[in-house]
Amino acid sequence: MSLNKPEPVQVIKQRRDAALSALVASVPYIRYLGVQFDRRGDELTAILPFREDLIGNPFLPALHGGATAAFLEIAAVIELSWLGLWEDLENGEIDLDALESGPPRPLPKTIDFSIDYLRSGLPRDAYARARVNRSGRRYASVHVEAWQDNKSRLFAQATGHFLMPDIGRNV
């Protein structure tokens, strides 16, 4: 028999983008902060477009530490969910039509989050990438790094622990 024909690229992109936007659009606070995600294959970059109301120190001016914290936490949670979703998504186990009404499964819950502020956030766009260091059935540990102009000059980093949603498998 001949090899399976690879899926058309548009079909793959449409499926992955639909799943990602279902994940992101389900959270009002992500929408409110204006956080977006750039996807390259399975790699995500979170983007926080600058807005005046993200300022915490109007005299410098600098981003609010709380806005930075929220941005990093969002980047961590979405990365963790995305990673958990990826395999099922690629195996066709996610109902794509149901994505319009919400994310395919609940988001992980934050247990703790520890933020390290390395330099003040400038009044411009910020970017973040998260790395899942451990993802078990119940707990996960995620590290996030955020930068603005130069990726080698991080302005904040964070580590968080998360409780994975009970999806009724692996029991």
């Binding site: 992500i30 902060l33 609010h64 709380g66 806005a67 914290a69």
Partner: peptide
Amino acid sequence: VIHGGAVSALLDT
């Protein structure tokens, strides 16, 4: 339920 990030912003401030 309120997002943890908003609670973080409140605690930071």
